[in-house]
Amino acid sequence: MLTQQLAIARSEDDGRIADTSFCGDTLSSEDLSKIIFQNVQFSKCRFTRCDFSQSRFLSVTIKNCDFSNCNFSESFWKQATIDDSRGNGADFSQSSCKELTLRDSSFAYANFSKSQWENSTVSNCSFKESFWSEVRLKKLTLAAAVFSGADFFKTPLKDLDFSDCKIDGITVSETFKELRGMQINLLQSADIAGLLGIKII
């Protein structure tokens, strides 16, 4: 069980849980902060208000899990995958994501503020009313993602292709500088025009 592995990791110097899998584990208000998860698979697990802050996820797979409202602030992700899972209301602020893959998952109301993304892929995920302020996005591939009502305050969207995404109701700064160089389709131009106060007739 994960709680047993966690106790062992806490007793060791490196705080590492590696080369294992967890299925059906349920944890509530557990402290998993600063743990290194390496080559670990989570499936059908449920985490309720658990603290994963400053933890590291290296070659980790999370599938069909629920970690809504958990704290992943200042966490580090590399070559990890989150698939068919729920992270609604989770806190990923100041996290670093490299080669992270998100698929078929929901992150409504989640907080990604001041996070960094590089060489990552997002497909068929919902980020409704989520927070992306002051985020660094580099080589992020987006497909069928929903950003309705998302906040991109002070996050440059230059060269990012949102043409296959929903971006209605997004929030940016008064200067609209975040939108410069953003790639959208013709239908989405109406949403952006609305931000700029332009009426299309």
Results as ranks from 00 to 15, higher is better:
S133I: 00
D84K: 10
G87P: 05
L100A: 05
A144K: 14
C65F: 01
F127N: 11
N69S: 11
Q94F: 09
R49P: 01
A145R: 05
N71V: 03
N119F: 07
I62F: 10
F112D: 02
K78L: 06
Y109D: 04
W132Y: 05
S96H: 11
S106C: 09
F127Q: 05
S115W: 07
C65Y: 11
L100F: 13
W132C: 03
T61Q: 15
F76W: 11
C45D: 10
G87H: 03
E99T: 09
C70F: 09
S126G: 10
N64H: 05
C50F: 14
T48K: 09
S85Q: 04
L102H: 03
L102V: 15
A80F: 08
S115I: 11
F152A: 13
E118K: 12
T61I: 14
S126A: 15
F67A: 04
F107D: 03
W117T: 08
T141N: 10
E118L: 07
W77S: 05
L137A: 09
S95T: 03
N124V: 15
S130I: 06
R86T: 02
S120Q: 01
C65K: 02
S126N: 13
K139N: 12
K44G: 00
S148M: 03
A145T: 05
S75K: 03
Q116N: 09
L137N: 09
G149C: 14
E118W: 05
N69L: 14
E74S: 13
S59H: 15
I62H: 14
S115L: 06
L100H: 04
R103Q: 10
L140G: 08
S115C: 07
D51G: 09
K139S: 09
L137C: 01
E118Y: 09
G89M: 06
C50H: 12
S120H: 11
F72S: 02
G87A: 14
F76G: 04
C97T: 01
W117R: 10
E99S: 13
D84I: 07
T61S: 15
